[in-house]
Design a protein around this nucleic acid. Structure first.
Lengths: 227, 227
DNA sequence: CTGATGTATTTTGTATACAAGGATTGTACT
DNA sequence: AGTACAATCCTTGTATACAAAATACATCAG
């Protein structure tokens, strides 16, 4: 299987899952652009597989909302509109708040320790000024909280919603003047979870998303109007 | 296409979607029981189609969480455990509260009118003592609120989560002594949405789910122990 | 009688074949 | 030159074929 996209070759994952991950990644990174048609034979040739795994992968992308089906015309990459992003962010805001509250109740000792380390890792990442590293540290920290809820369904939903914003993941950390505030926000979340202060934790989670929203919406608008 | 399940024969829906809806319905109603294997050739014969649409339908069911894939062994109907239901209900509680809040801000005149009629229809349904009719009226009322949020992603997620509880849809309205309270709860939700009282509306939505949760958990426990 | 091994069957995973609907392009006619 | 119509090509939707893995079963040895 030669590739153009970067295909992860986990030897014994079914091809459909390899294709699914590959296409999803390509869509989320913007390698496949909104509105672009996903033609089965073309993709099959490109990825060196037959149409069958391609089709099955598309069915999953369809349900995930990354792809839009047009009857008798096939799949195309779903448009990203300001509306679709605010819709996603609105839901994520509620679910992130829920995660914070549940984490207060259910976080284990080990996870608390992880969270502590993640906070420090984030501070360290900020010092490097490396956006990729900062983004990764932020995701890491967030994941620990989500996992601490112990709610698998919630984990799955939040991860899916997060993915939708993947291509804007740098926007809200691009502004270095906000870095100190981000560290502060994380500290508040960490401390309120330790203190089991649900209200403060969920409020901080909401603020966190609100800030992301501002950055992402600003970016979308500038993409549309400017240049 | 002959059937055993009730297949909806929307003439120009792709077979995969017909199969998807059919299987989903069968799983949600309990016609296909948790743990039961979904064998492709068998289903293909039963539904009178080839394996291809069956497989594509299964891919979607997989992502919806109604089906579990076992490597090189195929699909089986996902288990319903108390944990999986509380997970779902926990998320739904937060999202229903969000729906109520957003509805306060965004509901249109026409939708308010619909909601009013739905409340009255629910009262009328309760008087008939017909559980099916009551359940339908309740769903109807709920749908109006969800739609009123104007958030398509939210609509999709809430509908999906609701589906997971489909087979318990009668449990929380079985107890006739609670009917009056249900009417009262609906009235509170309706009035607080009209008054744009977010706090009361979301609180009422949460109470509503909490009651469903009690009924459903009680049912699951009785299925497991006594039955 | 029990356990292990080899064979047969079943079932998935993948590829390909075939049919039907849409889109596109070219041509003829106004 | 522009529009309408027809032929062709392309793409999807569906069915089937083939291979490999897993399971079940039966036979044989201890």
């Amino acid at each position: 299987m030669q590739d153009d996209f970067n295909v992860q070759m986990n030897e014994f994952l079914p091809l459909r899952d390899v294709v699914f991950n590959t296409l999803r990644q390509a869509i989320l990174t913007g390698e496949l652009k909104p509105g672009e048609r996903l033609m089965e034979i073309h993709l099959a040739n490109k990825l060196g597989v037959s149409r069958t795994p391609i089709r099955e992968a598309i069915r999953k992308l369809e349900l995930e909302g990354l792809v839009t089906m047009i009857p008798r015309r096939g799949a195309e990459v779903a448009q990203i509109t300001e509306k679709s992003m605010t819709d996603v962010l609105e839901v994520r805001r509620a679910l992130d708040a829920l995660c914070a509250e549940l984490a207060c109740e259910r976080i284990t000792e080990a996870e608390t320790e992880q969270l502590h380390r993640a906070c420090e890792a984030f501070e360290a990442a900020v010092k490097t000024r490396d956006l990729k590293k900062i983004a990764r540290a932020d995701v890491q920290l967030h994941d620990i909280i989500v996992q601490a809820t112990g709610n698998q369904r919630l984990v799955q939903l939040v991860n899916n919603l997060s993915e939708q914003m993947y291509r804007y993941r740098f926007e809200y950390i691009k502004d270095a003047s906000q870095h100190q505030r981000l560290i502060e926000e994380h500290r508040i979340i960490y401390e309120s979870i330790v203190k089991k202060d649900r209200e403060t934790a969920s409020q901080a989670a909401r603020v966190h998303i609100d800030n992301q929203k501002k950055a992402i919406i600003a970016q979308i608008r500038s993409e549309k109007t400017g240049h």
